[in-house]
Design a protein around this nucleic acid. Structure first.
Lengths: 216, 216
DNA sequence: TACAAAGATAAGGCATACCTTACAATTTTT
DNA sequence: AAAAATTGTAAGGTATGCCTTATCTTTGTA
């Protein structure tokens, strides 16, 4: 598991805000325009984010967030909008300034502090510009299978989000809750795992990102 | 003029806190221990800070803050301690956590925001650990001569701090308030300037750091 | 004064995250 | 289908700020 750098978080947050719908890939050109970076830089970063399993990169189409990327992005946006409220409501800063400064504070304060802030502010549900504040996510009961290092053995504790085809596919393979899996190898597109009965299975990255595990 | 990076600010803040007295050079070994960096890294950074005129580096002795370095450091410590108060008083965080998080927030929020925070908190004068909160400095009426780029012409608006020998030396040279000066060249030890009457004068860095100017 | 400890400096490396230039592949438009 | 526009990729560069290894200089003390 990796920890998102400030830059990575900014990218994930931007993808979260700029996308039309969670499933629609966000073209890299939008990110380029948003950050005012070059095409090449954005592309480089997209590859890195994909490598870390925070996004799925569809060449010539764009990027979508994985479950893990979604989690990071939603938490970031929540922190951002809560700080905005603090800045406007308690420090009387104007909208625009609040936005810029919240962009810094969102990285500086850990989740726990921001939750205390939320309580202080009265658990607001929208930011000063009307943007919804994502709810505090219950901690995931594990990490995404797509995010673990090869080698160790894990137990499946959840499938999320619950995509019908994925659930069906997993059922066909005899993979479910409590199944023990060991990661063999990872590529940007797929993951190779070994089940407890010795079978070797290859799953698409999109599937492995919905499988949540804990160390066995 | 340069803007201090987060890292530079951290160094200046550490020098401010760790030194015994403003005039006593702080040995680099203290910084090394504080940050847990290698001797070489700290030395590198000391040279950089000296190059930016935020510190004066006395080899084999240590570093002292210049007037400009002092300003940056005091402002940083003020921000740090105000955020600490916010975290303990309004968010009910324990001491130690507050300290660590304030270390992040102090870089994230601009001066203006922190001043509004000070008002919200009731202008406290000490941090949760009893450390004094430096007062908000009145904005210097200019920039240190040691900090300007060579080429342009400036007018002297203040000599600060007022070191008797320096004042005397400047008087002998006919340099005082409103004198127009143009920077010719800078080295880490000295600065070469041209006066309005055409005279070329070389001043030690320690002197040029006490001469405050505005663009003419 | 000689020697050990502390400090300075030179040279080369690494990771992050940006950049430019140049060329190749794909998609969209005409 | 061909041309134009968009997107991908390769190669090399920059700055920051940390690292190791190795050598040299200064300081302080026996």
């Amino acid at each position: 598991m990796f920890t998102a750098t400030v830059t990575s978080e900014d990218y994930l947050g931007a993808i979260y805000r700029l996308r039309e719908a969670p499933e629609t890939p966000l073209p890299l050109s939008h990110l380029q325009e948003h950050f005012n970076f070059t095409r090449v830089s954005v592309h480089e970063m997209a590859l890195k984010l994909a490598q870390r399993r925070w996004v799925i990169y569809y060449p010539y189409q764009g990027v979508t967030l994985t479950a893990e990327g979604e989690r990071i992005a939603a938490a970031l946006v929540r922190r951002h909008r809560l700080w905005e409220r603090f800045l406007t409501d308690m420090l009387d800063l104007p909208w625009d300034e609040a936005h810029a400064i919240a962009g810094q504070l969102e990285h500086a304060a850990p989740e726990a502090v921001t939750e205390k802030l939320a309580r202080l502010l009265g658990e607001p549900t929208s930011c000063p510009h009307g943007g919804p504040i994502p709810p505090a996510l219950p901690a995931q009961p594990g990490v995404a299978l797509s995010a673990v290092e090869p080698g160790r053995t894990f137990a499946i504790v959840r499938i999320f989000p619950e995509v019908p085809e994925v659930l069906h596919q997993l059922a066909m393979l005899g993979i479910g809750l409590h199944t023990a899996v060991q990661v063999r190898q990872q590529t940007p597109e797929a993951i190779g795992i070994v089940l407890s009965d010795g079978r070797e299975v290859t799953l698409p990255a999109a599937v492995s990102a919905t499988i949540w595990v804990t160390p066995a």
